[in-house]
């Protein structure tokens, strides 16, 4: 079910689990569970969340 090597990576040392990324995700692929941001396989790696992350914790690997 979960992709082994997702292209959207979460730097969990930077993430402040604010949920802004969840609010802009067009495919509902992100879910915040306490301090843990889950990325589902529906993620299209559109990168919108990476641009709005206040702390720079998200990255789409090329």
């Amino acid at each position: 079910m979960w992709r082994c090597d997702p292209l959207l990576t979460v730097n969990r040392y930077k993430c402040c689990y604010c949920g802004a990324c969840v609010g802009v995700c067009p495919t509902m692929s992100l879910e915040l569970v306490e301090t843990w941001l889950e990325v589902s396989p529906e993620c299209k790696e559109c990168g919108i969340c990476t641009k709005i992350c206040p702390v720079g914790a998200l990255e789409v690997k090329a």
Binding site: K51, C53, P54, V55, L58
Partner: peptide, 11 residues
């Protein structure tokens, strides 16, 4: 958001 970027607010 449209004028921001990765980590811009905290920087």
């Amino acid at each position: 958001g449209s004028k921001s970027g990765s980590g811009v607010p905290v920087r």
